[in-house]
Design a protein around this nucleic acid. Structure first.
Length: 790
RNA sequence: GCGGGUAUGGCGGAAUUGGCAGACGCGCUAGACUUAGGAUCUAGUGUCCCAGACGUGCAGGUUCAACUCCUGUUACCCGCACCA
């Protein structure tokens, strides 16, 4: 009987610090392979999702090593940011200590999952010698004008001391504490991500990833092709105030534009507020609208509100008529200004009626014509508008620039000071890292400013440019910052002089397979594309693509079909499963439940099938007979090799496990397995169930399985290969006959003619047509006109 | 609303990409060994009017051949609706 506790402990101890798992920079002979699993969140224990997400990556890394690759398979922790800080606040432990402890914990748990990471390269985003380079990247962004600071209005809850989204502050009430929300002016650091929209779309096209994930990313970027039309803005007296560009996909409606509608957040109105006749009303409207969630504004269109802005107007560039401006919460801040065409849009008409705005009709007979004529006119008229300079082709993106600061303690400090003489001044690169000062008072402040602003020793500094008294930026970077480049650092994790040695970056190249959850597919992965593009353009990294392939791990659901997480009460811990059934069993069971990208409901049901299988594998030792591969098993072994190799490559562990089960069943039926058969089988199963296979291998062959070589398909070994040919008549199966492989249609028919019973059957048929699929089937069509159509 | 994905036995899920539908496992049924069985072994297990026919959400189509391709349709899941 297999004692998993003893065996697994033995091997995990052996693997701790094992050289086999270490990636070697510039290996002289082996080709490289880079498998990446996403950062651990360092705020708790590993959960079932990690068991599902990491094991296939581990299996891939283990197989690649056996195949003779120099594998880089690292792990690290996303240690900065809210999750760690909140957990620290809750437990009262300093975030730094909390993170140090947390990292140790998740690393230990990883080892209990049998994960073969190169632990020497483990990094955490809150390590000083790591975030030094996060800060360095920010300096490059600033230097290359990809970072800027701008004022914006946010919802702020004085009680919770946090900035709230509209979602969390419906009707001006904080979602968490039900206190009143206030509107605050804030400086926001933005990164010019929008500028990279096209490049990100190219990254999306190039990466090997499932279509629905690609669509998620494309939706997020939200590219729309249309036209931009500038409208002049004037005051009551007709003085020119500026120009408002509207975006539309139907430029030909321009003559019908009877008003412009804009989001309550409109910057235009904000800018010209002193010209607005009803500014009190407008300001109040803006405030009310800001408390409605975007979801609410989009879906509950019946509740749409609006406010006519008096005192400033737009000029329709085609009709030259003065038209009013309307704020409405049916338009979202990111949508931009739209033209209202009440003559042709029901919703617009309702809006116009409210304010007594007359519809403007388009006076072109073709426009009213049949669909084809109308469409032709639309195209021609749009062209005219472009030719006359009234409209121009334009592209709009939903994705906005990336707001890059948080009023929190636990994050990367910005390497920037504010000097009354020189303005915003970046620190010198040689002065990095700008370390996060230690404090016990890291709770968010009453007024929502960063806790760092209280540490006056740290805040007050000298301007690096002129030496004048200056102040540091007291906001910190978001937790997405550190995770936007970490795969690069793994290539050279301890380099004190560069974010990574360019030669090492070149050697390891793009990540061959990036695994992890799909919840980060829009944000994290797009940030990753953004930063790598930027770093590539400034020559800091040799490739534009961070990842060649991305596999999104499905979720583990609980019995009610909800996402299983550490917070859910019925969440089962992987450690609990390992304790009861063993690590190999836990690894196999969870992946036998479903494919890598599928959501799977956790259940213990069926785990006895897995432990039964492992016991059968163990018992193979009792039926070893003979040395070389036997003729009887040659083909099964050959097929298993092919199947397992391609399945692990594709991260389809469920079918790899199934075929291993099938193979073991056959060995049991035949009551023997030869030494060489067992050797190959153990190597094939090793990436999936590393402990038991290591033990049997050592016991039987006296060697470490990690030194073994992955079996290759070996045609020479087989004298004759047989295959089952299905014989159909009119597409109905009649016989299944074992035949040699590789026969042509004629050879096959000759071969069948040698078999009396089949020959007797076939010779009675009047074949009209014979279809042959090599090595698979033959279909004899006898009847005429069976499928004849009328 | 827009876009993407999925739909196969009692259950989880296979199907080499157009070629034996239901691999593998659970569960279930019967039997063996047992004081016992939540252990092990053996056999069976898509449905039905069972020498046959029908079966991959539903309705059509293409093909010698369709889970697979095309058209339409329904249900569910995911993304977008500034938590960036």
């Amino acid at each position: 009987m297999y004692n998993f506790k003893e065996v697994e402990e033995k091997w995990q101890e052996k693997w701790d610090g094992d050289e086999h798992f270490k990636a070697i920079d510039f290996h002289p002979t082996k080709p490289k392979y880079y498998v990446l699993y996403e950062f651990y969140n360092v705020s708790g224990n590993l959960h079932m999702g990690h068991l599902k997400g990491t094991v296939p990556a581990d299996a891939l890394a283990r197989m690649k090593r056996l195949q003779g690759y120099n594998v880089l398979f690292p792990i690290g922790g996303d240690a900065f940011g809210l999750p760690a800080e909140n957990a620290a606040l809750k437990t009262g432990i300093n975030p730094k200590d909390f993170v140090a402890k947390g990292m140790k914990n998740v690393v230990n748990q990883s080892k209990k999952l049998g994960l073969s990471f190169d632990y020497d390269r483990t990094i955490a985003t809150s390590d000083e010698d790591y975030y030094k380079w996060t800060q360095w990247i920010f300096l490059q962004l600033l230097k290359n004008e990809k970072a800027y600071k701008e004022k914006g209005i946010v919802n702020f809850c004085p009680n919770c001391k946090t900035v709230l989204s509209n979602e969390d502050s419906q009707d001006g009430i904080c979602d968490r504490c039900h206190g009143k929300v206030v509107q605050e002016d804030r400086w926001v650091w933005y990164l010019k991500m929008k500028e990279y929209a096209e490049k990100l779309l190219e990254n999306v096209d190039r990466i090997d990833m499932s279509e629905n994930l690609k669509e998620s990313q494309r939706n997020w970027i939200g590219k729309k092709e249309g036209y931009e039309i500038p409208f002049e803005i004037v005051d009551e007296e007709g003085n020119h105030l500026g120009v408002e560009n509207i975006f539309t996909q139907e430029a030909y409606f321009l003559p019908g534009a009877a008003y412009l509608s804009m989001a309550p957040e409109s910057r235009l109105i904000e800018k010209w507020m002193e010209k607005v006749a009803n500014s009190d009303q407008v300001k109040e409207y803006k405030k009310q609208a800001s408390f409605r969630s975007a979801m609410d504004r989009m879906t509950k269109t019946k509740d749409t509100t609006s406010c006519l802005v008096r005192g400033i107007y737009a000029i329709n560039p085609f009709t030259k008529k003065r038209i009013p401006l309307i704020m409405t919460d049916s338009i979202l801040a990111t949508t931009g200004t739209e033209m209202g065409i009440p003559a042709y849009r029901q919703k617009h008409q309702e809006m116009a009626d409210q304010y007594g705005i007359l519809p403007q009709y388009i006076t072109a007979p073709e426009f009213e014509g049949d669909a084809e004529t109308s469409k032709k006119w639309q195209q021609e008229f749009t062209k005219q508008l472009i030719d006359s300079g009234l409209a121009k082709k334009s592209v709009s993106y939903k994705m906005q620039d990336w707001p890059f600061n948080r009023q929190r303690y636990w994050g990367e400090p910005f390497p920037v000071v504010f000097c009354p003489e020189c303005g915003t001044v970046p620190l010198k690169e040689e002065d990095l890292p700008l370390t996060l000062p230690e404090t016990n008072d890291y709770k968010p402040r009453e007024d929502g400013s960063s806790p760092l602003s209280k540490i006056t020793d740290w805040v007050n500094c000298k301007c690096p440019k002129c030496g004048h008294d200056a102040k540091r930026e007291t906001d910190t970077m978001p937790n997405w910052a550190g995770s936007s480049w970490y795969w690069l650092r793994y290539c050279d994790p301890h380099n004190p002089n560069q974010l990574a040695d360019p030669e090492k970056l070149k050697y390891w190249g793009s990540v061959d397979c990036y695994t992890g959850g799909t919840e980060h597919i829009t944000r994290h992965v797009l940030y990753a594309f953004f930063w790598q593009n930027f770093l590539y353009e400034i020559g800091a990294v040799p490739t534009r693509d961070p990842f060649k392939r991305k596999m999104g791990s499905g979720l583990i659901l609980d019995t009610e079909g909800k996402k299983m997480s550490k917070s859910s009460t019925n969440g089962v811990s992987p450690m609990e499963v390992i304790d009861k059934y063993g690590c190999d069993a836990a690894r196999l069971h969870i992946h036998f439940l479903g494919g890598y990208e599928d959501n799977t409901a956790w259940t213990y049901n069926g785990i006895n099938g897995i432990t039964g299988f492992l016991n059968k594998v163990w018992d193979l030792q009792d039926i070893v007979q003979g040395e070389e591969i036997s003729d009887k098993h040659a083909q099964a072994l050959e097929e298993l090799t092919k199947k397992v190799t391609s399945d692990i490559e594709a991260l389809k562990l469920n079918t790899a496990i199934a075929s291993c089960m099938g193979f073991v069943n056959q060995m049991k039926r035949d009551k023997y397995i030869t030494k060489e058969e067992l050797r190959r089988f153990l190597i094939l199963l090793n990436p999936l169930a590393p402990h038991i296979t290591s033990e049997i291998y050592e016991k039987t062959f006296g060697e470490n399985i990690l030194d073994a070589e992955w079996p290759k398909e070996d045609q020479k070994n087989q004298s004759v290969q047989m295959t089952n040919i299905v014989i159909c008549v009119n597409n109905k199966k009649k016989f299944v006959v074992p035949c040699p492989k590789g026969l042509s249609k004629e050879q096959l028919l000759d071969y069948l003619a040698l078999q009396d019973d089949i020959n007797a059957f076939l010779s009675n048929l009047e074949a009209q047509n014979i279809y042959h699929v090599p090595d698979k089937m033959i279909n004899i069509v006898t009847k005429k006109n069976v499928y004849e159509k009328k």
